[in-house]
Design a protein around this nucleic acid. Structure first.
Lengths: 110, 110
DNA sequence: TCTTTTACTCTCTTTTGTAGAACAAATAAC
DNA sequence: GTTATTTGTTCTACAAAAGAGAGTAAAAGA
């Protein structure tokens, strides 16, 4: 790809990072992905995608302190950057524009 | 990929096939892609994607008769199938749902 | 028939998508 | 206090999609 284009899975993961806000970390993202889209993914797939998003500058990450729950390890939490948000908006604009030219898709019922 | 998921570029190309209607063929799709999204693509990339979409059952194709214009060769024209439309709608629903949870993206101004 | 224009097909490389094993750290259980 | 269990991330591979461009083909004009 040209470098700035968001892949399909990258876009979904980036959206979920945004939706989760504070608690966007690997396993949580995978669970939310399944909950929101009904689509399951191996944990490795999620982390690989997060790493790629970070390389592109669309997310940032940092480690949290461990919690008190069973097995509560430190988490690597992710956060969307301005660049990431911009990429999402661009992607969205292109789609909305195309959908509006295809009445069959029922755009407008959003 | 799992097989039924539309890749990012595949989705755009499929949308453009829908938008173009009768005149959806390789070079025309490439031109419309550039016009609608500002994104250029090599002709080989477009055809490779159309072939994949056809293998997945999202488009069908057939050859036209040649026209009278200079160099007017026969074209391979594409048409979206019901399955293709269904895939687009599913993809759209997932995105619209996620966007609605991210107020920052200004969903609603569609 | 030679050139130009319009098109598609074929081949190759890079980037994304996907899976899962390996590893690490914290708590629970005995 | 050692061992098992739970919660996490990293590492390694491979398949599929994205992308580029050379090659080929057919029609029309000169």
């Amino acid at each position: 790809m040209k470098g700035d284009v968001l892949g399909e899975f990258e876009e979904i993961i980036l959206l979920i990072v945004g939706v989760l806000g504070q608690d966007a970390y690997g396993l949580g993202i995978r669970d939310e992905l399944e909950k929101q889209t009904g689509r399951s993914a191996a944990i490795g797939a999620v982390h690989a995608t997060l790493n790629r998003l970070q390389e592109k500058g669309y997310v940032e990450s940092g480690m949290t302190e461990g919690t008190q729950e069973r097995g509560g390890r430190r988490k690597r939490v992710f956060q969307m950057t301005g660049l990431g948000k911009k990429a999402l908006i661009e992607s969205k604009d292109v789609r909305v524009n195309l959908w509006s030219q295809l009445p069959d898709l029922n755009v407008g019922k959003i």
